[in-house]
């Protein structure tokens, strides 16, 4: 009986997330379109509202090409590893008070584990395709993700010191409902590091080097087509949402807002996540891409010392102010 309830919850969560993923692609195209004085998708449905559904149907019926040289089993497993890792990390996110699938007390650690796991999918995809572009894309992606993983992990230590827990629900509760209680204010350095690392972890502009289309065609996904490519795409967008959720929970006070929306408790959570998504898209429309050596320099020489300094600073301030 208990399992059945969990199963229903998972199905609902999955349906909602898939809908959000589909429409996140639509918002992205629409917002970038308008920022570049274009209209974005307009043909299918009113103002192109059915575009994501049409895209889904299209990729479902597209031919699935497995290259001759590819390592078939790994090639097939890679997108599923990516998607599963991202989906599983959704389980620990509290969308509102009590709206969480698995309220485990190592939530934050679990999220890091899962986001590391998804980079396996990427590197395996790059290796298994047996093509030069995918190989280089996979390597780059791995190096980028692990570099920024360190910065991200260290940046959140400050939040853990203030809240004294890894449980995501408790992190939100400790911040309280007030505006000044949000950890973005005492942890502004950590937020800065986290935000940049977040862009790099999700392979977004200006750090989208693994799939830099001007040099690596489509990076690790070059040899993928049809539904397999779509699964990579889904995983990427779920990843964006998960990262935005971590930012919301750890720095912006989670589901708390200026007033309570009793009909729909996660209202403020969704608003904050979409604010993050909008900034992602805004940055994509604005900034050019970094060079690879610049990317590694920022990660190792700027963000990691900053994050370590933040830990020391937080430690001192907490020790002397009590």
């Amino acid at each position: 009986m208990h399992v059945l309830i969990i199963l229903i919850e998972i199905l609902v969560l999955f349906a909602v997330i898939m809908l959000h993923v589909a429409y996140a692609t639509y918002f992205e195209r629409k917002i970038i379109g308008h920022m570049q004085v274009r209209m974005g998708p307009m043909r299918i449905g009113w103002h192109g509202l059915l575009q994501p559904i049409a895209d889904g149907i299209k990729s479902f019926f597209k031919e699935d090409i497995v290259p001759e040289q590819a390592d078939v089993v790994t090639f097939r497993a890679a997108p599923i590893i990516c998607l599963t890792a991202m989906l599983t990390s959704l389980a620990v996110l509290p969308f509102a008070k009590g709206w969480v699938l698995a309220n485990i007390n190592i939530g934050l650690l679990f999220l890091f584990a899962m986001s590391s796991l998804s980079s396996y999918g990427v590197i395996l995809a790059g290796w298994a395709s047996n093509s030069k572009y995918t190989f280089l894309g996979g390597l780059r992606s791995m190096a980028q993700v692990i570099s920024y993983e360190v910065a991200m992990g260290l940046s959140l230590v400050g939040v853990m010191m203030l809240s004294g827990t890894l449980n995501l629900t408790k992190i939100v509760e400790v911040q309280g409902g007030s505006f000044g209680g949000m950890y973005i204010f005492p942890q502004i350095i950590a937020f800065f590091v986290f935000f940049i690392a977040m862009l790099a972890e999700t392979n977004r502009v200006p750090f989208d080097l693994p799939e830099a289309e001007t040099e690596l065609v489509s990076g690790y996904a070059t040899e993928y087509s049809g539904m397999r490519y779509a699964i990579f795409f889904m995983a990427e967008y779920i990843g964006m949402m998960v990262m935005a959720s971590i930012g919301t929970i750890c720095f912006l006070g989670g589901w708390n807002g200026p007033f309570e929306v009793t009909i729909f408790p996660p209202f403020w959570f969704v608003v904050k996540v979409y604010a993050f998504m909008f900034v992602f898209i805004w940055i994509r429309a604005t900034l050019p891409r970094y060079r690879y050596d610049q990317l590694m320099t920022i990660g190792w020489k700027l963000l990691i010392p900053l994050a370590l300094g933040n830990i020391v600073l937080t430690g001192f301030i907490k020790a002397f102010t009590g």
Binding site: F14, A91, A102
Partner: peptide, 11 residues
């Protein structure tokens, strides 16, 4: 952790 396991299998 059951929920996580089920979500993993589901994925």
């Amino acid at each position: 952790y059951l929920a996580i396991l089920i979500l993993l299998i589901f994925g």
